[in-house]
């Protein structure tokens, strides 16, 4: 099973469209799950939405989470702290990466069957990748 990817954005539309883009470039076999907006459909983030997305993305090889900014990062960090206290929780890593570029890079590498560390590295390399 490939590494799963969760995309946390304040906007459900941004999370979904980024997942769609990642799937278009990485193929349909990688689990890229959008976790955008609050649990009642507003702009913002929800730990319950993110937690559910992580469960959905987890195929046993771990999950990398990418966040846009602000409360997305704080919510993901809070969830990770809760998982630390729970032995049955999935293995989750947060990627310090640009949202769209990181999601695509992570999805493409995950599609090759790479492990969690490699997928996180791939996403984080997006920070240094120049465009011009």
């Amino acid at each position: 099973m490939t590494v799963g990817i969760v995309l946390v954005s304040h906007s459900m539309a941004v999370a979904r469209a980024t997942a769609e883009l990642a799937h278009a470039l990485a193929g349909p076999d990688v689990a890229v799950i959008a976790a955008g907006g609050t649990d009642d459909g507003r702009m913002g983030t929800s730990i319950d939405v993110v937690s559910q997305a992580v469960s959905e993305a987890d195929g046993g090889s771990g999950v990398v989470v990418l966040m846009d900014m602000g409360s997305s990062v704080l919510t993901a960090k809070t969830l990770l702290a809760e998982f630390d206290d729970d032995d049955a929780a999935p293995v989750v890593r947060l990627a310090d990466a640009p949202f769209v570029e990181g999601a695509v890079a992570a999805a493409v590498l995950a599609s090759t069957g790479a492990d969690l560390d490699a997928v996180v590295d791939s996403a984080e390399q997006g920070r240094a990748m120049r465009k011009l």
């Binding site: 913002g44 929800s46 409360s71 704080l74 960090k77």
Partner: peptide, 9 residues
């Protein structure tokens, strides 16, 4: 769970 912004976490 329910705040939605950074002040929640």
């Amino acid at each position: 769970s329910k705040t939605g912004g950074a002040s929640g976490p």
